[in-house]
Structure formats: C-alpha cells, structure tokens
C-alpha cells in the first residue's frame, strides 16, 4: 500500500454574494471533489461562506521573498501612481 500523502489544496471562500473569494487556509484531499467536501466541513461550519474554490497548492506560483527589493521597492517613490490627490465624496465607499 502506498504511504504517499494526499496532496495539499488551498481553499478560497466567498463569504457573501458580491465579495471576493478570500484565501482561508489549506487542507489535504485525494482529489478536487474531496477537497471541496473537506473544505465545506473544515471551513464553512459556522456559515463562513456561500462559495468555495479549491486549487491544488502545487499549481500556485508564488513570488520569492528574496525578490522583494526588486519587485516592490521601485513602486515606493512613485506616489503619482496613487489616486490620493482626489477628493472623494463622502458617500462613495469601499475605495
């Protein structure tokens, strides 16, 4: 019998209609269908969500923390890219 562990899956949950799916954690499952059911049991027991996405962790390509300088530093002194010079009306929210 194979002792190989089940692959790891990243779980994303949409808490309400209209909001984004948000990463909530990860779990082990043999395939996508099982990952969905496990996610339902592990992450939505307290009504946390209305929709679940599962992605096998190995399919995620992540940036390397060592590259942080080259990746993010150059944006620091380019304030003109931020729309911070506009006055927003009070009743515009979520910006």
């Amino acid at each position: 019998m194979s002792k190989k562990n089940w692959p790891l899956w990243e779980i994303f949950i949409r808490s309400k209609q209209g909001l984004n799916h948000k990463h909530v954690g990860s779990l082990h499952a043999a395939d996508a269908e099982m990952a969905l059911e496990n996610a339902r049991d592990v992450y939505t027991r307290r009504q946390e969500g209305v929709s679940i996405w599962v992605v096998e962790s190995e399919h995620i390509t992540a940036s390397n923390p060592e590259d942080a300088d080259a990746f993010y530093e150059p944006a620091n002194d380019k304030v003109y890219r931020h729309p911070t010079f506009y006055d927003l009306p009070d009743n515009v929210k979520h910006i």
């Binding site: 089940w6 779990l27 082990h28 499952a29 059911e37 496990n38 049991d41 592990v42 027991r45």
Partner: peptide, 8 residues
Amino acid sequence: PVLEQDIA
C-alpha cells in the same frame, strides 16, 4: 484517519 475526515 485524517483531520478533515475527523471533522466531517
């Protein structure tokens, strides 16, 4: 047998 099934 695994945490996920324990919870299920």
